[in-house]
Design a protein around this nucleic acid. Structure first.
Lengths: 230, 230
DNA sequence: TTCGTTATCGTCATGATGACGAGAAAAGGA
DNA sequence: TCCTTTTCTCGTCATCATGACGATAACGAA
């Protein structure tokens, strides 16, 4: 039996919260096609490499960070025949949520890399669509899982966690109700015993991630966006 | 730039509810590898074919049905280097939810096809894992979307919809509370005006799918299962 | 000390849900 | 015909989660 031949890439939607806004990691393409255009970081899967391993490798190459604390999961795959002018390329997109980090160092095949606030971008390939899907996944994940903590350093305050929700969802939340919800949901966060120091206002207790993987009941947005279908 | 060469397949997790139990469509493999073993239906993506189009084509070939009423969505991709002895094959899995249909006719490359109750199966390749991911996705989707109606014919009773939930979740629901929830959630279902006839008991009103894409608030399972992580 | 700021705790009304009672509307048998 | 069985549909009530918001605690700065 004969069958068509494909190339397979991984592309990364790497999100973080900086200065109260949600940012995505972009690279300026250093080779054709779309030379000079902004795109999601990514690259070809190697001959003997698992998809998840390729995603982790690309993430380490682009951000210089592969340590724990963040989150990486498969997002979706994209394989329209015309999506890459070089030929038949299927890309497996991954979604990464990271705490705020120093400015990333450019990888080998990327001329530049930088954090950009999410919004109207005009990316190479079908990366606008991939980014949109990644954003919707991230917003939805925050409702049903404690993954917001993946945007935070190992120890964080409830207020910092709330600001993650506000940045990702783009809406403001009542600090008192949010505090009640987070601290009363078993396994969401657990106190470290420490507090903040030197900040304005009353010191805040520090927490780390709990061991829950699912929030029950979930923490729902006010306005549910359209479901992504197909 | 050179890069490794892959084959790309689509595999389908096709689910339906028959006699109150959740069933998955399996085919017996008619060629190597895993000849004679049960597997998910699927096949190679053609040279000029989109991934979703390939999934729809395979679904039509295996079930003989491509009409509306069901639901098809991308599930996840699997690309471990050793997952197919023929070489580097990445598969994009799709999840299909269909109303109960006549026994499927075997496709060209499948010796047999049949509905099997979900449970301990021993499938070819990594299809046990793909099936498990598909089941968890389906269970979760029923919580947050009105997709349970995809398992039902165009007009259905509330009781039939409840039996879908009971089959997919494997737990029984209170008929009265379920009725209240479904009929009071805007856009979940809308009455057709008709009723059942000839059935035992009081005739039931018939409904069709509403126009909502998301249930807010959701209809949650009692026991949340583990989140699928990557 | 006083004020501004932020964190944390409480209160109250409202809405969703689980448990369950009870009537409505059919088929079928005595 | 009349009763029983079955299933659908509507209500009731206690409980829990949530939104709105008041009040107090604990810091730094003026």
């Amino acid at each position: 039996m004969s069958y068509p031949v494909f190339a397979v890439t991984v592309d990364l939607v790497v999100l973080t919260v900086r200065e109260g806004r949600l940012h995505v990691l972009l690279v300026r393409r250093g080779c054709e096609p779309f030379l000079g255009r902004w795109a999601l970081p990514g690259g070809f899967v190697r001959a003997d490499e698992d998809l998840a391993a390729a995603a982790r490798r690309e993430l380490a190459e682009e951000t210089g960070l592969d340590g724990p604390g963040g989150h990486l999961e498969q997002l979706a795959s994209y394989g329209a025949p015309e999506r890459d002018p070089r030929g038949r390329v299927v890309t497996v997109a991954y979604l990464a949520l990271l705490p705020d980090l120093p400015v990333p160092t450019a990888g080998t095949d990327a001329a530049e890399a930088e954090w950009r606030p999410v919004g109207r971008l005009d990316l190479a390939f079908d990366h606008d669509r991939i980014l949109a899907d990644g954003l919707e996944r991230a917003r939805s994940k925050l409702e049903y899982t404690p993954l917001a903590a993946a945007f935070c350093p190992p120890a964080f305050t409830i207020a910092a966690l709330r600001q993650v929700y506000e940045a990702v969802w783009g809406e403001s939340l009542d600090p008192r109700n949010f505090h009640r919800k987070v601290t009363s949901t078993p396994g969401f966060v657990s106190p470290t015993g420490g507090t903040t120091e030197g900040e304005p206002g009353r010191p805040a207790r520090l927490y780390r991630r709990g061991d829950a993987t699912l929030l029950n009941p979930p923490l729902l947005r006010r306005k549910a966006l359209d479901d992504r279908s197909e």
